[in-house]
Structures are given as C-alpha cells and as structure tokens.
Amino acid sequence: METLYSVTVGILTACSIFLILRGRSFPVVVGITMLSYAVNLFLFSTGRLTIDGAPILGTSDSYADPLPQALVLTAIVIGFAMTAYSIILAVRTRGEVGTDEVSDSNSEDNR
C-alpha cells in the first residue's frame, strides 16, 4: 500500500512539474494547482496511512494522526486562495499584455 501511495504521489508531482514548465500561464496555474494536490497528499501521509481510524473520539480504537490532517486543511484553504489569485492574475496579465505567454517572446522558450 505504501509503495502504491508514494508512487502515485510521485507521478502526480511529476505531471504537475511538467505542466509548470510549460510556456503559457494557464497550464502553469493548473500545474501549480495539481502540485498542491500532490503536496497535500504528501503532507497528509506524514501521519502515516490509517484505514477506518478517523480522529473522531469514540469511533475507533486507534486513530489516524490528526495533526497532519489539520495542517493539510490549512494548506488546502491557503492553496485555494493562491489558486484563485493566480488564475485571475493570469487573466489580468492577458488583458494587459495581450498574450498568455510567460516567457520572452523571442526565445525558444515560448512554446
């Protein structure tokens, strides 16, 4: 299970990084959003994986580590705020600059 989980997180991260390295703002923002999912899964798993152990007192014998869950919750909300800001900034940039490219227009980078 642990192998499956970490491989999944790794692949999710790699796909996000690939998107982050694109030359247009929209895929980059999507990549960052997806990376935040991967990071949340990573952070969450630092409390190790527990099935049927939701940290609600009185529902189980052994509880999952609640602290990473709380951290991830904070991270999700902050991530939401950041995603919202960056996507609208991307719109504004396109409005002002006229293109959504995030690299210098003459170089080979801008694909």
């Binding site: 192998t3 970490s6 491989v7 997180v9 790794g10 991260t13 790699a14 990084i17 991967a38 990573f42």
Partner: peptide, 11 residues
C-alpha cells in the same frame, strides 16, 4: 527527477 525525489521521501 522531482517526482522521484518526492516519491522517495514519501516512501
């Protein structure tokens, strides 16, 4: 590479 690093640490 980055995916590999994250997966390694995670595992």
């Amino acid at each position: 590479f980055i995916g590999g690093i994250v997966a390694t640490l995670n595992f």
